[in-house]
Design a protein around this nucleic acid. Structure first.
Length: 333
DNA sequence: CGTCCACGTCTAC
DNA sequence: TAGACCTGGACGG
């Protein structure tokens, strides 16, 4: 389930559960693994991890630095990548890269990826085209978007731009739906329109600022997060959830994740294919740039008794489209 | 059995 | 703007 929360949780898992472990030997690669052999070998080494958007960097460090220089690896998870720790004697299917512990019996930290859309490369370099991480580099992320609104990339509908990793590194298909849903922004509103409005809203806030205490400012921002703030805080909800939503060990977690979703895959919501063929989930108006000749699919409202919050119920305490744009209908812009 | 769908990029007409 | 790249789960006949 790899969008930035899953990459960050994988990093936390590796630093936590694997942080105390010693690894040994070479790095094993499966026959079909998409990625290079890893030219690293050490009798005793540790593994640490750092996530940035939809990439995860591992650093292999020999206990004796003279014996072998550290080796960095940068992973992308594709549609199905994950890390798991399992007994070396019973490797999971599709474990394409394996790091063996020095325990007896040994275990293996595995990069598991059934569909093989994921990959790894040697070295410490993040993919250069990708922008700052929405989770770990929030301020840089925000500035990168607001400074570049004249880029043709923002001519497109907001739902498509949210998947552009040059500006929204870490956002994927479920996050874009959840983020837009919180503000009830029509997914096919033009991105620049949405984001320019946000810039002006920022100016307004500044004007009122001097009269507010810091704590009141913080409170106001938390109660009325704008689109870019939600690009940070919505993934953070997944990362910091009390009940682990993506625990590599727990298979019960998928139910918890489904329960966290308010829009994506939720009965009663609408969905459309965007211009890249990906399904965007939303509620209400699709917006002015919606692809034509496609009936919005509305999922069956209720099958059996739904415990889910009623989608028609008033939005929780976040700014609505009306509050942000000052008009009730997107077409009136 | 079959068809459709999936949390993401890539490159090639 | 298609496809290509893959496996597997859900669901229909």
């Amino acid at each position: 389930m790899p969008e930035c929360p899953e990459l960050h949780l994988a990093g936390r898992f590796i630093n936590g559960v694997c942080g105390g472990l010693l690894f040994t030997g070479g790095v094993e690669r499966s026959a079909v693994g998409r990625g290079p052999e890893v030219p690293f070998r050490s009798e005793a080494y540790r593994i640490s991890a750092l996530a940035r958007g939809k990439e995860l960097r591992l650093t292999l460090s020999a206990l004796d630095p003279a014996a072998a220089p550290p080796q960095d690896l940068v992973f992308r998870f594709g549609m199905s990548g994950s890390f798991r720790l399992s007994p070396a004697a019973e490797l999971p299917r599709h474990a394409h890269l394996r790091f063996l512990t020095r325990e007896s019996p040994p275990r293996a930290l595995c990069f598991v990826d059934p569909r093989r859309f994921g990959s790894w490369r040697l070295g410490d370099a993040w993919q250069p085209e990708r922008g700052p991480c929405v989770v770990s580099e929030y301020q840089a992320f925000r500035e990168n978007v607001l400074k570049n609104l004249d880029d043709r990339a923002f001519d497109k509908p907001i739902c498509e731009v949210l998947l552009n990793q040059k500006y929204f590194n870490g956002i994927g298909n479920y996050l874009r739906a959840e983020i837009l849903y919180r503000l009830k922004i029509p997914p096919f509103e033009k991105a620049r329109t949405v984001l320019e409005a946000l810039k002006e809203q920022e100016q307004e806030r500044r004007k009122k600022d001097p009269s507010l205490t810091l704590s009141k400012k913080v409170k106001l921002m938390q109660e009325n997060p704008d689109l870019l703030e939600l690009c940070h805080s919505v993934p953070m909800e997944v990362i910091t959830a009390d009940k682990q939503l993506f625990d590599p060990e727990d298979s019960d977690n998928y139910a918890a994740f489904k329960d966290w979703l308010r829009c994506y895959l939720v009965p009663g919501m609408s969905s459309l294919r965007d211009r890249n063929g990906r399904t965007i989930w939303f509620q209400g108006e699709p917006g002015p740039m919606a692809p034509k000749g496609q009936r919005p699919r509305k999922t069956p409202r209720k099958k059996s008794p739904q415990l889910k919050a009623d989608p028609e119920a008033p939005a929780p305490k976040v700014s609505s489209f009306v509050a942000v744009f000052g008009c009730p209908v997107p077409c009136a812009l």
